[in-house]
Design a protein around this nucleic acid. Structure first.
Lengths: 208, 208
DNA sequence: CAACTTACAATATCCGTTATCTGTAATTTG
DNA sequence: CAAATTACAGATAACGGATATTGTAAGTTG
């Protein structure tokens, strides 16, 4: 109960209660009346902050996505070789997903549902991360570490190649199967980097 | 109706009728009674060939998987540079999935369900394809085209990197979104090949 | 009057009943 | 007697009325 430790009702406190409900009972058994009861208000009060229940669910996942983007952004414009930073960035993104699956299962399940039900949200998120990768690649090219004629294509190659390590459904499967995920992610990224170091000419590939 | 053009009842004819039913009505509306009626026999007769309805569904997808493996095997031990053969092999695998999605939607949907419900079947299939990729890589290394210290790791890197282009759910999404899938697949595989040409040392990575 | 509650309409979910389907075994047929 | 059918029991799914939930709008309160 949030009610006991009194807090003003805000979008953030509503989201906290919603997450708490989902963690206890799962998304399926979570209804806005229970979330409101947890906050000590009527369910209608929550519609001041979210115009629907699904907007609330979306916001929870959006928060997680923002967290991941922030985590990844940390490696842009930082010191050290681009190769090490790219590996670290993608490893971090993988670990965030894995940690959610292992330690915050119900939220992970919600995230996974959104991946299916909201391709638009996922596309926006994917583009955001891809742009961060593109920024890192651009730096490496400017610093002369890598030689790539089309850094946008290179960024999308990276994104597609590591999707399997960051997509909630695959992470769940790989972790469950006890696969050596980090080693494989490392091998994959190392391979891409080798190509970038050796110089990649993509020619005139048309945009997405 | 298969009944008109008389054929002996075999596992293959049963599977044909099952596929025909699924194509017309979808998996959900397909029952074994209808499949049997289409063949002009009682539903119990089918249990001689498949010990359950789900075994029948599995067999349909297994047939598709076998077809894909056969398609891929074609490129092993063939003439021409390994780079061209790897690109062609993966492009073929992608196109088979895409063609099913575009021209045989109900069977594609069944395939996609099996991916979720039968991770064991998928794992076996994935390993089979990965082994073919490993064979092709081995050849390239033996012929001195590529320089790779651990071809099994390399094969798994290829598999993970192109999963997004051959996984039914992703193919469906990419094709629906009108993404330049073949160009991206080509860019991805080209990148991996560049690394292989330039020489990949994976060191002592532990097995899956 | 901003923040909330109560009241209510529309929608979705639950659940007990009914019907259908699956899988098996005893029985028939060529 | 091999191959199939008919008959049937258990499992699954479809149906529909009762219940709960969502979302809105009118009303209440500090």
């Amino acid at each position: 109960m949030r009610e006991t430790s009194f807090q003003p009702l805000t979008a953030a406190t509503v989201l906290e209660s919603a997450k708490a409900q989902i963690r206890r009972f799962g998304e399926a058994k979570t209804n806005v009346t229970d979330v409101a009861r947890d906050l000590g208000v009527s369910h209608a009060a929550l519609y001041r902050f979210y115009r629907s229940k699904s907007a609330m669910m979306d916001a929870i996942v959006q928060e997680a996505m923002d967290d991941e983007a922030h985590l990844a952004a940390h490696y842009i414009g930082a010191d050290g070789p681009a190769a090490e930073r790219l590996v670290a960035m993608l490893l971090d993104l993988h670990r965030r997903k894995r940690d959610r699956f292992v330690g915050d299962r119900e939220i992970h399940d919600l995230y996974q549902r959104i991946v299916v039900d909201r391709p638009d949200m996922i596309a926006t998120y994917a583009e955001r991360i891809t742009n961060l990768v593109a920024d890192l690649i651009d730096e490496a090219v400017r610093r002369g570490e890598w030689h790539i004629d089309d850094t946008d294509v290179a960024a999308r190659v990276v994104r597609d190649a590591v999707t399997v390590y960051v997509h909630p459904a695959f992470v769940a499967q790989l972790v469950t199967a006890n696969a050596p995920v980090e080693a494989m992610l490392h091998a994959t990224v190392t391979t891409l980097i080798r190509a970038f170091e050796s110089s990649m000419r993509y020619g005139n590939m048309k945009e997405a």
